[in-house]
Deep mutational scan, measured.
Amino acid sequence: ATNIVGKVKWYNSTKNAGFIEQDNGGKDVFVHKSAVDAAGLHSLEEGQDVIFDLEEKQGKAYAVNLRIK
Rank of each mutant, 00 (worst) to 15 (best):
D49L: 15
A38R: 10
I68L: 13
V8A: 01
K60Y: 11
R67A: 04
K57A: 10
L41N: 02
G25W: 06
K57W: 12
T14N: 12
L66V: 09
T14K: 14
V50N: 00
A35F: 04
Q22E: 04
Q48A: 09
T14E: 12
W10N: 04
Y11Q: 02
V5H: 15
S13K: 14
E55K: 11
G25E: 06
D53P: 00
V36W: 04
F30S: 04
G40Y: 05
G47Q: 04
A61G: 09
N12Q: 07
A39K: 03
K15G: 06
E21P: 01
Q48Y: 06
Y11D: 02
E55G: 06
Y11R: 02
L41W: 11
N65L: 02
Q22G: 07
T2R: 14
D49F: 15
E46K: 15
A38G: 06
A1I: 12
I68N: 05
W10F: 09
A17Q: 14
G26E: 09
F19Y: 12
D53C: 03
A61W: 14
A1P: 10
K9F: 03
F52D: 00
F19D: 01
A63E: 02
K7E: 01
G25F: 07
G6T: 01
V5L: 13
K7L: 04
G6Y: 01
L44D: 00
A35W: 04
Y62L: 07
A38V: 07
D23H: 14
D37N: 14
K60M: 10
K7H: 10
S13I: 12
S13D: 09
E56D: 08
W10V: 05
A38H: 08
L54N: 01
E45C: 14
F19G: 03
L41P: 02
G47W: 04
N65Q: 03
I4E: 03
N3V: 04
R67L: 05
V64K: 08
K7F: 06
A61C: 13
N3A: 08
K57M: 10
G59Q: 05
K33N: 05
E55R: 11
V64M: 05
N16F: 09
E55Q: 11
Q22I: 13
I51A: 04
I68R: 05
H32L: 08
H32S: 11
N65A: 03
E45F: 15
A39P: 01
Y62T: 09
T2L: 13
Q58I: 07
G59F: 05
L66H: 01
H32Q: 07
E55F: 14
T2Y: 13
V29N: 00
V50Y: 03
G26H: 09
D49T: 15
N12C: 12
N16E: 11
I20W: 00
V31I: 10
A1N: 13
D49C: 15
S34R: 10
S13L: 10
R67K: 09
D23C: 15
Q48P: 00
V31T: 01
E21S: 15
I20F: 04
H42N: 12
F30P: 06
G40C: 09
K57G: 08
L54C: 08
N65H: 08
S34Y: 08
V29W: 05
G26D: 09
Q58F: 13
G25I: 06
E46W: 12
I20R: 01
F19T: 06
D28P: 10
H42T: 13
I51D: 02
G47D: 04
K69Y: 12
Y11H: 03
K57S: 11
V8K: 00
V29F: 05
G26V: 06
F52T: 01
N3C: 10
I4K: 09
I4P: 01
V31C: 01
D28W: 13
K57Y: 13
R67G: 03
H42D: 12
I68M: 09
V64D: 03
A38L: 09
F30R: 06
K9V: 05
V31A: 01
K60T: 07
D49H: 15
T14F: 13
F30M: 07
V36K: 02
A17F: 15
G47A: 05
V5A: 14
A35R: 03
F30Y: 11
K15Y: 13
K9T: 03
G25P: 06
A1S: 12
K15W: 14
A35N: 04
K33G: 11
E21D: 05
K57E: 08
I68T: 09
I51T: 08
Q58V: 08
G26I: 06
G47E: 03
L44P: 01
V29C: 03
G47P: 00
T2N: 10
K7P: 00
A35M: 06
H42G: 12
Y11S: 03
V64G: 03
V5C: 14
L44N: 00
Q58E: 13
Q58M: 13
E55C: 13
V36N: 01
L41D: 02
V50A: 02
V50S: 00
W10M: 05
V29H: 03
G18Q: 01
L54E: 02
E46I: 15
V36E: 00
G18A: 03
H42K: 13
T2K: 14
K15M: 15
Q22T: 12
S13M: 11
S43L: 10
A35G: 03
L66A: 00
V8D: 01
A38D: 08
A1Q: 13
E21V: 13
S43G: 13
K15V: 11
V50F: 03
V8M: 03
G59I: 01
F52G: 01
L44G: 01
N65M: 02
E56K: 11
D23A: 15
Q48V: 09
I20E: 01
S34T: 12
N3S: 08
G47V: 02
D53W: 04
V29T: 04
K69A: 11
S34D: 09
Q48K: 05
A35E: 08
N3E: 06
F30W: 07
H32T: 10
A1F: 12
Q48N: 05
N24V: 07
V50W: 01
E56L: 13
A63H: 02
D49E: 15
E21Q: 15
Y62K: 08
D49R: 15
S43V: 11
N24F: 09
E55D: 07
N16L: 09
N12I: 07
S13Q: 11
K9S: 03
D23K: 15
H42P: 11
I4Q: 10
I20Y: 00
I4N: 06
D37W: 14
W10A: 04
G25T: 07
E55Y: 14
S43M: 11
S34Q: 09
G47F: 04
A39N: 03
G59R: 05
R67F: 04
G18V: 03
K9C: 05
D37P: 01
G47N: 06
N16H: 13
L41Q: 05
V31Q: 00
Q22C: 13
H32A: 08
E46M: 14
N16A: 13
L41S: 03
W10G: 03
L66F: 00
V31W: 02
K60I: 09
V36Q: 02
D37M: 14
K27W: 07
N65T: 02
I68F: 09
K7A: 04
D53E: 04
E56F: 15
D37C: 14
G6I: 02
K7N: 04
L66K: 00
Y11P: 02
G18N: 01
E45A: 12
A17Y: 15
D49K: 15
Y62Q: 11
T14P: 05
L44M: 05
G40S: 06
F30T: 03
Q48R: 05
W10L: 04
E56Q: 11
H32K: 08
I20S: 01
Y62W: 12
A1V: 12
S43Q: 11
E21M: 14
Y11I: 07
A61T: 14
E21T: 15
S43Y: 13
G25L: 06
K9A: 04
K27A: 12
S43E: 10
Q48E: 08
I68K: 05
Y11N: 02
I20V: 05
K33L: 06
D37Q: 14
F30C: 07
K33Q: 11
G6C: 01
D23F: 15
K69I: 14
K69D: 09
Q22R: 14
F19P: 00
F52H: 00
V64I: 11
E55W: 15
A39L: 07
K57D: 08
I51R: 04
H32P: 07
G6Q: 00
I4Y: 06
A38T: 07
N16W: 09
E46D: 08
F52V: 02
G6R: 00
G6P: 00
E55H: 12
A61E: 12
G25S: 07
A35D: 05
E46N: 12
L41M: 09
I4D: 01
K9I: 06
A39F: 02
Y62P: 03
V29R: 02
D28N: 09
N12W: 08
Q48F: 06
V64A: 06
Q22V: 14
A63V: 07
D37I: 15
V8W: 06
N12T: 06
A38S: 08
E21C: 14
I51S: 04
Q22K: 08
D28Y: 10
N24C: 10
K57Q: 09
T2I: 13
K57C: 11
R67H: 06
G18M: 05
E45T: 14
Y62F: 11
V50L: 11
Y62E: 07
T2S: 10
K57N: 10
I20G: 00
F19R: 07
V29M: 02
S43H: 12
I4R: 12
K7V: 08
L66W: 00
D23L: 15
R67Y: 04
W10Q: 04
V50M: 06
K60G: 07
V5D: 08
G59Y: 04
G47K: 05
D23I: 15
G6L: 02
K69V: 13
V29G: 01
L41I: 09
G6H: 00
I4A: 06
T14A: 13
A63G: 04
V8C: 03
E46R: 15
V31F: 12
S43I: 11
